[in-house]
Design a protein around this nucleic acid. Structure first.
Lengths: 242, 242
DNA sequence: CGATGGTTTGAGATATATCAAACCTCGTGG
DNA sequence: CCACGAGGTTTGATATATCTCAAACCATCG
């Protein structure tokens, strides 16, 4: 009903959206969705394409429809740290803030549902249910981020990589299956290069590579190709994660 | 007006609260404050006292009235990582969550304004302005935490300590003066032991101590006593922070 | 096929951890 | 008032995990 075809997104878009029930829009009714619809537009990103730059004006926010993106910062001399990974149904950007606090770059091909930050802010303030969803998500993300600080500050390379693999096996479940309730995967394809894994874990590419090799040698995992991982002995891996 | 003396906190309490204008309660009107008042109570913590334990049921949330507290996690074998520091007007605890994700311990004597988590959740859901404040605060905290990941993952000991000292000089401003608009301090007393600094930075106590000594030897800072710091050459310190 | 970019493997350097002892500081009790 | 003890801190000597530099390797794509 309601809006004409002038709407930036086909009005059937949100209804067809694969993450509709899991993203922050989940609690909105038809009318609210239509209103949100009218200020959003879909955008396709190719692997390696950057959506937001650290320090620039916070012009837009977005929902991830599919694909994987990294949030990153770095030092002046080029060292990089990945400070977050976002998957389908996750939210991107900095609402209620003037500047973007970190860069956002697609690691795989990705589709995102983009909003002007200011328009989104206004909409959010008028829709407490949306703000509540956003709050729950932000609180969960903060918990996850703080847990990662233990890894960065106190774990050694072996523990870091083991933790990373466990984490991936739990997060790379198919978008179809319900997110956290299911079983973790025993085999999966990493959407990251070795360098990106190093930038997540605060290690060098060589240390990552050597530990992968060792895990394989010890029979804990198998590596059929560069990006495929089979977990052969999950208990051992969990023990290594510390 | 409204409530009788049976209220857990004297109804004049919130009005007299020193963080009233800076905490998440800031946007509430008199009536709302009174309602919040009726579910909260003040509690005094002595240095070293733990308010929340990681993994336990999330029973309470709180506002910090004064003092400094640490948020921390650790590994099974006792390594510890401080994942956050909270000061006057900051919010503590995990609303809308079943378990407490990290321990909370007072580093100095502290006063906190405590609420049952469930009652607070209910109140928050009925008061979007409060939820909005909480959202803004959580988003800011997430930004700060992610910035700290760069320090933990990619900075060396010198850069870590320099960054820490700069950060402290900006955050330990008197509760009276307005929080972030003012000048950073050139001298201050750290509310942390060397071990706690090490646990913030992901270093050992010896490495922290050696770098303090070196900074002093190089004339960048002075250390009149164990916990006092004078910044003698802020520009140099900022350059070292990377 | 040959070039290219990412990855693995190796040898060596180095920052930080570890282990250990000496050193303050401050409160307590003789 | 001083000696003592305890906890935290500093300093030193050594070990080691991880980084750095460099070369070989491999997959992919024209």
């Amino acid at each position: 009903m309601t809006k004409p075809a002038a709407s930036p997104i086909d009005k059937s878009f949100c209804q067809a959206c694969t993450v509709r029930k899991r993203a922050i829009c989940a609690d909105l009714d038809e009318q609210e969705i239509a209103a949100l619809n009218s200020i959003g537009r879909q955008r396709k990103l190719s692997a390696g394409e950057q959506l937001l730059w650290e320090g620039e004006d916070a012009v837009l926010v977005a929902n991830v429809i599919d694909g994987v993106l990294k949030l990153w910062t770095g030092t002046a001399d080029g060292r990089q740290q990945i400070v977050g990974l976002v998957y389908a149904s996750d939210f991107i950007g900095r609402p209620f803030g003037a500047t973007t606090p970190y860069g956002v770059e697609a690691l795989s091909e990705a589709n995102v549902c983009v909003f002007s930050r200011k328009e989104f802010d206004t909409f959010a303030r008028e829709h407490p249910r949306l703000e509540h969803k956003l709050l729950e998500r932000t609180l969960a993300e903060l918990d996850r981020t703080r847990k990662w600080m233990l890894l960065l500050g106190r774990k050694n390379a072996e523990e870091k990589l083991a933790t990373f693999l466990i984490d991936m096996s739990e997060r790379l479940v198919e978008p179809g299956s319900n997110p956290l309730s299911g079983e973790p995967l025993t085999q999966f394809e990493l959407p990251f290069s070795r360098q990106q894994i190093a930038d997540v874990l605060g290690l060098t590419i060589e240390t990552v590579s050597r530990n992968f090799a060792r895990f394989k040698r010890e029979g804990v995992i198998d590596l059929p190709s560069r990006r495929e991982v089979h977990i052969l002995d999950r208990a051992a891996l969990e023990a290594m994660a510390g």
